[in-house]
């Protein structure tokens, strides 16, 4: 395929937006890349997904460089939970052949749509209150603190229900392995609603983790030829620029505002999954 300079610039601009949004909510921006490529550029869905995998990795690495240095991402929580997500992804890919993906897309899409409700109830919460370390969190020293520019102080936080969060991460990995999609939403949900981390820590730690899970499958997409260099190039560069901006923007946002941005994106992903279940690739 031959893309003009103008088309590439358009793709770059859309990717910048995806990078900003993806780095803020910790989902990688694939949600925007896929409909952008299929609807606006008429690209077959497999190539759109190939490019969105690259976008997820670019957002993750681009923003995490800043998030890690700013002590927003919790590296220990991220590394520990990555065991669950990568193991889940492998087992998901194994059983994928035996299950009908259409039905799975609809089931998980509906689950995700329902999960919007508890987040809406948490809208007024700036920081989780009364959270105490469980035994596993204490043993792994997961509790930490992060500097909050919006609140103008360093926020100490503890981690609860670590094993439930770990189990949920396995499910998140399973879903991504089964369906070949990013599972940042389920990762943020696990950290925000189960382990009760501050929203900023949840999205930035998810952002830190998604690159690893996406890299595992990117190799397969690449060897299948689903990653078109000339499509992926403007996407990668745009997303990197967007992630750079998003990572700086996040420190000044409140946790409430971040959750407010997260909800419509999450609903959009749920809708996208349900539509894909009905054979509509967006």
């Amino acid at each position: 395929m031959d893309l003009s300079l103008l088309a590439m610039l358009g793709l770059f601009a859309g990717s910048v937006l995806a990078g900003v949004l993806g780095s803020l909510v910790g989902l990688g921006g694939g949600v925007l890349i896929v409909p952008l490529l299929t609807l606006a550029f008429g690209l077959p869905i497999q190539y759109a997904i190939g490019a969105s995998i690259v976008a997820v990795i670019a957002t993750s690495s681009g923003a995490a460089a800043a998030y890690v240095r700013d002590h927003l991402s919790n590296i220990r929580i991220g590394m520990f939970l990555e065991i669950a997500t990568t193991a889940g992804a492998i087992s998901g890919a194994f059983v994928a052949g035996f299950l009908a993906p259409q039905l799975l897309f609809i089931i998980f899409g509906v689950i995700l749509l329902i999960s919007v409700a508890p987040i809406i109830f948490k809208l007024g919460e700036e920081l989780p209150q009364g959270v105490h370390n469980d035994r596993l969190a204490t043993r792994l020293q997961l509790a930490s603190s992060y500097p909050d520019h919006h609140l103008g102080k360093t926020v100490d936080y503890q981690v609860t229900r670590t094993s439930s969060g770990f189990a949920m991460m396995y499910v998140a990995g399973l879903i991504s392995g089964l369906l070949g999609i990013g599972s940042g939403t389920f990762k943020v949900l696990a950290m925000d609603t189960i382990m009760r981390l501050p929203m900023k820590v949840s999205t930035t730690t998810s952002n830190f983790m998604i690159g690893v899970t996406a890299a595992a499958s990117a190799g397969i997409y690449f060897s299948r030829g689903d990653i078109l260099p000339l499509v992926a190039a403007p996407v990668a560069l745009g997303v990197l620029a967007g992630a750079f901006v998003g990572a700086r923007l996040l420190t000044y946002l409140s946790n409430k505002m971040l959750r407010l941005i997260f909800i419509p994106v999450m609903a959009l992903i749920a809708l996208q999954m349900i539509l894909r279940g009905f054979g509509i690739g967006l």
């Binding site: 065991i83 990568t86 194994f94 392995g177 070949g180 599972s183 996406a214 190799g219």
Partner: peptide, 25 residues
């Protein structure tokens, strides 16, 4: 030591998924 082991497990699972040619997104 704990996190050295944890990171090693993650890398091994990653390498395994590359070898198997499977893995999630």
């Amino acid at each position: 030591r704990k996190f050295t082991v944890i990171s090693t497990i993650v890398l091994l699972i990653l390498l395994l998924s590359f070898l198997l040619g499977k893995g999630g997104a």
